[in-house]
Design a protein around this nucleic acid. Structure first.
Lengths: 303, 303
DNA sequence: CTCGACGATCGGATAATCTGATCGTCGATG
DNA sequence: CATCGACGATCAGATTATCCGATCGTCGAG
């Protein structure tokens, strides 16, 4: 008789292609993993995995079984989620992924309110870039993500939260720090400081400055937005800073922030989740709350 | 952690609406059933079933969970079936339902061949009328059914096996037993003997004799085709006998069988299975074998 | 009021599963 | 060529989960 355990272990093994790591994912030891997989193979009468040195491989017959097993595991998780929904909105565990250029600035704006309004929610936060978030959403390792649009995956549903305009951040003593609205076209590429490759914010900034290649950019990308801003403050160049950073309380006397001329470059921040998830209501409630917090932070930024 | 056991038990309970009978379906005792259901309810934090005297009821929240649970249970069974398919065709357990006007005549024609060609097949046979067969197919209690077309269920797939013409069976000493092809229109309703209500063969016979109502039929329906034929032999009337019965070796000196004038009344015997089943190949192989046996029995009938 | 049907509950037995230790094998490395 | 490290297999013993059989409590029918 095939059990959920067999299927869960198999899915983990297919994801990691490694008995030890799969076992870890399932919070068991490697012998337990080995035993269950072998039992499943025996029951089905099929070799599901090829044991080889280095990385193991799922056999071609195994692939189909894995696909179905993953669907079953997801369905059962959906049943559990559905049940929790009946308990009320935003109750129980919620795995939330956020891109690194949003997390440190948005969370301070929202977490207190979230905790106050939904005390029974148990958020588990994860911070990675868009690519990983999308993969983890699909795999069901996170329930919902906060990232920048566009998200071009038909299996995901999105909910726009707010428009995050970019501001031009310049050192206060920079001769380029002219007053009045900035113009993206006037930014000299060799002065533009950006995050390292893989951050969507980097791509967006490049797009808005109409720079196709990063060939003649100032430096290799920085690891965090804070680092970039430190570099700006130290006079190494300029950057496009999301208004979100300002609303989160960023204020450095060495940096001048100027809005762009309309149409201002901006990114659209949104929630994304598996369309098949039964927790739509949770996500929509979360979305409303985030949008509300974003708006509430407007005054603070203006001040 | 929700297990397959929880889901299987829940589905059984939803089907039977009775702890004892559900337990029986799952081959466990009633306390085991009670414990698992209660555990599931506790895990999900939802009352799934209303314990009442007489028949229990699934709560409205429970209905949705049951629906999903049934889907999961079916998916897992499909995984097992899929795995068996890889072993070769017609291997392992196969639950086959057959209508009562086919089973006793078709089985002798096929079983020996089936057993010879597919020795590893473990057929589990069930004989009931079309309505039950369709329900059991849908519920997954049987894998495939042999019945008469038409089957008007979009979720089922069918494969026509052979056309089973009706013969007019008359007592040998009946004055109506004229030579030559018979004509359905000449059958006197009060002489027509039929099976009891619920058998598709009865409806087909009525349709072919252009008798809308059964108001002025000879008697209350009989329980089995053999009974009807005994009555014919005894001179109580006539009946429409499927050629299948003849091919199975039926031969009674007291009964004369005559073909009908073309277009002869007939029924189309077919296989039916859940379209979602991964065992199509099994069913098609079974279909080929049955058709072959039907054709092979032609000579015997003519002899 | 008594009885029967039904689901809940309990104690002891059993089977499934896990852990921790250890082994064997293969590829890389010096 | 010997050694080492990574990895999965295997085994014994401990731990849980699950089941069964017996029994109880409750409700409705007669």
């Amino acid at each position: 008789m095939v059990t959920m355990r067999h299927l869960r272990y198999l899915v983990a093994l297919a994801e990691t292609r490694h008995f030890g790591r799969a076992a870890e994912l399932c919070h068991v030891t490697q012998p337990a993993m080995s035993a269950q997989i072998r039992e499943l193979e025996e029951m089905l009468g099929i070799d599901l995995v090829e044991r080889r040195r280095g990385a193991i491989a799922i056999t071609s017959e195994g692939e189909e079984i894995v696909r179905r097993a993953a669907a079953v595991v997801a369905s059962v998780r959906d049943i559990e989620d559905l049940a929790r929904q009946r308990q009320g909105v935003l109750v129980g565990p919620l795995a939330l992924g956020i891109i690194p250029t949003v997390a440190p600035y948005l969370l301070p704006l929202c977490l207190a309110t979230l905790r106050a309004r939904h005390p029974r929610l148990e958020p588990r936060l994860r911070e990675t870039r868009t690519t990983s978030l999308l993969a983890e959403l699909a795999a069901g390792r996170i329930d919902v993500a906060i990232l920048a649009l566009p998200v071009d995956r038909p299996e995901l549903e999105t909910l726009a939260l707010f428009t995050d305009r970019f501001l031009l951040a310049t050192a206060a003593d920079d001769p380029d720090a002219a007053a009045g609205p900035a113009d993206a076209a006037t930014i000299r590429p060799e002065r533009l400081l950006l995050l390292e490759d893989g951050h969507c914010l980097r791509e967006q900034a490049l797009a808005h400055c109409r720079l196709a290649s990063a060939a003649n950019l100032a430096t290799l990308g920085a690891t965090s937005l804070t680092t970039v801003l430190q570099m700006v403050a130290a006079g190494y160049g300029v950057t496009l800073m999301p208004e979100l950073v300002a609303r989160a309380g960023f204020d450095d006397p060495r940096i001048v922030l100027r809005p762009f001329r309309e149409p201002a470059p901006a990114r659209e921040i949104a929630l994304a989740w598996r369309a098949a998830s039964p927790r739509r209501k949770d996500f929509q409630a979360l979305g409303r709350l985030v949008t509300e917090c974003w708006k509430a932070a407007d005054g603070r930024a203006a001040a």
